[in-house]
Design a protein around this nucleic acid. Structure first.
Lengths: 189, 189
DNA sequence: CGCGACGTTGATTTGCCTCAACGATTGTGG
DNA sequence: CCACAATCGTTGAGGCAAATCAACGTCGCG
């Protein structure tokens, strides 16, 4: 799975593939289990083989705010904490029993040294992630809650079917109560 | 200036430096002049030598929403439009008379081919930009307008002194009127 | 079964917006 | 160098989108 994802961007030789695979650690994680908690220093970047994870921050009043979801084929992790080796402000846990693949920061740096074209892969993945965030910032600024919800439905129909509504509400930046009302009333604009 | 910025991340040989410099186009842009408008396809990525630019989107009701500012040493551009060669949703213009350096997408791709370590530079710049966006998304979700303003003051004191308040208000996601009231009343929480 | 997670609905509140009016400053053409 | 417009910031009255708080139904699961 992870090789297939990478092969969409760059082509490994056999040796490179072998080397790459030697760096991976597979892991199972159960629903509700934490991968990281606030204050941890993230040592691994994570690829989701199957299942579903989320990262979220907690504000001063104790409310969760979902930063991202990750299902099959997605990467998840706090790049800030991983890059700077600083404590993360976010929590990462599993919404479903999941199988994940982890690469340590050390091995990642090793990979960049030995297989420079992996830089290209990372750059491209980052570009995509950056674009997604750009859109999210603009949508939060330019659109109403209902419009954001509609866009979410178009962009991630699979997530809508799979992820609890209170989590989606949090991702969209609204309360579960308002989300429920919005859906039932189909508030236009 | 641009070489100094790059040398913080990677080291060019003399030939590479020469090649890199051959790809740059310098340009002056006057206050209020557009670099890109909604619907344009971005062909260049832009580095600011001096002055100040901004990108912003316009919502259905005609209100601006600033996505980013760029002063000396910053890069600016719609990566989505640049990467996919799709029409941009945003406008980029100058808040001050400015001097900028532009690199075309074509030359950028050429650079990636000829100087693979430039991939690394891009990856690192992107990581930083990604982190900044991550923080912005979390702050918008977790903090009140006043808290966001305080954070802005801490992080970008120079911008606060230099950029008109209505633009900062837009960046923070509030109206100029509310921004003014907030400051005068020092609304806590 | 019984408890906790999830969703719904209603009454009330609030953070921020809208609209409108009004100084202060800047800049521009005559 | 002045008149005038445009830009920018401030202040006040009223309004709205979404939050809060609370109660209640339902489902899945240990």
């Amino acid at each position: 799975m992870i090789l297939k994802t990478i092969s969409q961007y760059i082509t490994f030789t056999k040796e490179e593939t072998k080397f790459f695979l030697s760096l991976l650690r597979q892991k199972k994680i159960r629903k509700k289990q934490f991968l990281y908690q606030e204050g941890d220093i993230c040592k691994y970047t994570t690829f989701v083989n199957n299942g579903c994870l989320r990262t979220y921050a907690i504000d001063n009043s104790g409310t969760d705010h979902v930063f991202q979801f990750a299902t099959e084929g997605w990467w998840i992790g706090d790049i800030e904490s991983l890059k700077n080796q600083t404590p993360t402000m976010m929590n990462t846990d599993a919404l479903e029993d999941s199988e994940i693949i982890m690469i340590s920061k050390q091995d990642m740096d090793l990979l960049y040294e030995k297989v420079p074209k992996y830089e290209r892969f990372s750059r491209m993945i980052l570009e995509n992630a950056y674009i997604a965030h750009q859109q999210r910032i603009l949508h939060n600024a330019c659109f109403s809650a209902y419009e954001r919800y509609q866009h979410f439905l178009e962009k991630y129909p699979e997530w809508n079917a799979r992820i609890p509504q209170n989590q989606i509400a949090s991702y969209l930046g609204i309360t579960p109560e308002f989300f429920s009302k919005m859906k039932s009333q189909a508030l236009i604009k």
